[in-house]
């Protein structure tokens, strides 16, 4: 999956009312890409949905 660009990050932030200044933008972009990459990797550790999860769904 390709990394988000600073422009993407600025747009995502604007969508929820946040204004990320120029001084912070590059740093936040690096941090966000790194965090997303590691959180996505957690998916590989999750077992497939089982009976408990299905029966507890709404």
């Amino acid at each position: 999956m390709s990394d988000l660009t600073p422009e993407h990050v600025r747009a995502l932030a604007a969508a929820i009312g946040l204004t990320i200044g120029d001084d912070d933008l590059e740093d936040v972009t690096f941090r966000l890409n790194a965090t997303l990459q590691h959180l996505r990797a957690l998916d590989m550790l999750e077992p497939p949905p089982g009976p408990t999860m299905l029966s507890s769904g709404v």
Binding site: V9, L18, I20, L32, L36, L39, L42
Partner: peptide, 14 residues
């Protein structure tokens, strides 16, 4: 700022 932009689907997985 970074944490504000994390998608809910990945948070649920965590």
């Amino acid at each position: 700022f970074t944490a504000s932009l994390l998608p809910a689907s990945l948070v649920a997985s965590a």
